[in-house]
Amino acid sequence: MATFNLTPSDSSTFILNGIPGLEAAHISISIPFSTFYIISLLGNFMVLFVVSKEQTLHKPMFLLLCMLALTDIGMSTCVVPKALCIFWFSSKDITVDGCLTQMFFLHAVAAMQSAVLVTMAFDRYIAICDPLRYTTILTNTRIAKLGLMGLIRAVLLVLPVPLLLWRLPFCANRVILHTYCEHLAVVKISCGDTRINRTYGLVMALVIIGLDLTLIGLSYGLIIRAVLRISSKKSHGKALNTCTAHICVMLMSYTPYLFTALTHRFGQGIAAHVHILLANVHVLVPPMLNPIIYGVKTKELRDKVGKYTCRM
């Protein structure tokens, strides 16, 4: 069988297969996909709207919530519209440029979200361990600078991913067994030498996830040490309660990502549809639940959202 290369001048396309083995159920699967996406957009845009309107919410914690909301919107929007086109219209073709663009934005947004979660852990550390200096250490300007640093880090680390893929030859097998252009899923269909791509993907994951989880673990280690020094059990609960929302969001964000990354490399025995469904959980469920969790756990935000909801 003849092979061909996808080069910068080649207009060939990839084919996103959707969820292998569950093609007959694509219409049914699209229902939770679209529902979760709509709830995610409504919840996160509500957070952005309320925080922007309420002067009393112009604080570091709520600025971080806005950053998280933006990454949630970006992550789900990178994936869900194209996935729904696959499910509803069997529109599986995606151009090489479109695939690499989707890959860049998806991984860059994920890296940015990880940076936001690290900053949130630092915010909780200062609030509990050094509350008297909280307003001087964490100003809105400083939070904005940390957010900008996270964005720059994400772009610099993720940009080589599509550039390295651009040089690879893709032969007769152009079918990507996924609903979106995930890095390793695209690497697997190349008929060239992918060692550099795989190595860089691993290095990127270690730098972003490994470093960020280490910093978050360090922050919570110091928080727990500070809480244990408090004699009052009531104060223990109150201090740890301020971290509950962040811990829930962190677990929802990192657990599916780590599972997906590990199964790509070591999970050959796991059914493809299970792996891909869980990979989609990572871009669907956290963006939908994050604004709900913070809305329930943060009284100031809950009260303001209630005020605007009652006006509608």
Score class of each variant (00 low, 15 high):
residue 9 S to G: 02
residue 12 S to G: 15
residue 16 L to K: 02
residue 16 L to P: 01
residue 21 G to A: 08
residue 25 A to T: 09
residue 25 A to H: 10
residue 25 A to F: 11
residue 33 F to M: 15
residue 36 F to R: 01
residue 39 I to Q: 04
residue 42 L to K: 09
residue 44 N to K: 05
residue 50 V to Y: 04
residue 50 V to D: 05
residue 51 V to G: 01
residue 54 E to G: 10
residue 54 E to P: 11
residue 55 Q to L: 09
residue 64 L to A: 05
residue 65 L to G: 03
residue 66 C to K: 04
residue 72 D to P: 00
residue 73 I to Y: 00
residue 82 K to A: 02
residue 82 K to N: 07
residue 86 I to Y: 01
residue 93 D to N: 06
residue 97 D to H: 03
residue 99 C to Q: 01
residue 100 L to C: 02
residue 100 L to A: 01
residue 102 Q to I: 03
residue 106 L to D: 00
residue 114 S to A: 13
residue 114 S to T: 12
residue 116 V to M: 04
residue 119 T to H: 08
residue 119 T to F: 06
residue 123 D to F: 11
residue 128 I to P: 07
residue 129 C to T: 10
residue 132 L to E: 13
residue 133 R to C: 05
residue 135 T to K: 11
residue 135 T to V: 11
residue 136 T to F: 13
residue 143 I to Q: 10
residue 144 A to V: 10
residue 144 A to Y: 12
residue 146 L to V: 07
residue 148 L to G: 15
residue 148 L to S: 15
residue 148 L to N: 14
residue 149 M to Q: 10
residue 150 G to N: 04
residue 154 A to K: 04
residue 157 L to R: 05
residue 158 V to G: 03
residue 162 P to I: 07
residue 164 L to N: 09
residue 168 L to D: 08
residue 171 C to M: 13
residue 175 V to Y: 11
residue 179 T to E: 13
residue 182 E to V: 08
residue 184 L to C: 10
residue 187 V to L: 09
residue 187 V to I: 15
residue 188 K to R: 12
residue 191 C to E: 12
residue 192 G to P: 03
residue 193 D to G: 11
residue 195 R to W: 09
residue 196 I to F: 14
residue 197 N to V: 09
residue 198 R to C: 14
residue 203 V to I: 15
residue 210 G to V: 02
residue 212 D to H: 12
residue 215 L to K: 07
residue 216 I to H: 04
residue 217 G to S: 13
residue 223 I to M: 08
residue 223 I to F: 03
residue 224 I to C: 11
residue 225 R to H: 13
residue 228 L to E: 10
residue 230 I to M: 14
residue 231 S to L: 06
residue 232 S to N: 11
residue 233 K to C: 13
residue 238 K to Q: 12
residue 239 A to M: 12
residue 241 N to C: 12
residue 241 N to W: 12
residue 245 A to C: 12
residue 246 H to A: 04
residue 250 M to G: 09
residue 253 S to P: 07
residue 254 Y to Q: 08
residue 255 T to Y: 11
residue 256 P to M: 14
residue 258 L to C: 14
residue 258 L to M: 15
residue 259 F to H: 13
residue 261 A to L: 12
residue 264 H to W: 14
residue 264 H to D: 13
residue 265 R to P: 07
residue 267 G to M: 11
residue 268 Q to R: 13
residue 271 A to I: 08
residue 275 H to R: 08
residue 276 I to N: 06
residue 277 L to G: 05
residue 278 L to Q: 07
residue 279 A to N: 01
residue 282 H to E: 00
residue 283 V to L: 00
residue 286 P to A: 07
residue 286 P to D: 01
residue 288 M to E: 00
residue 289 L to D: 00
residue 294 Y to W: 09
residue 296 V to N: 06
residue 297 K to H: 14
residue 301 L to R: 02
residue 301 L to A: 02
residue 301 L to T: 01
residue 302 R to I: 05
residue 303 D to T: 03
residue 309 T to F: 06
residue 311 R to V: 11
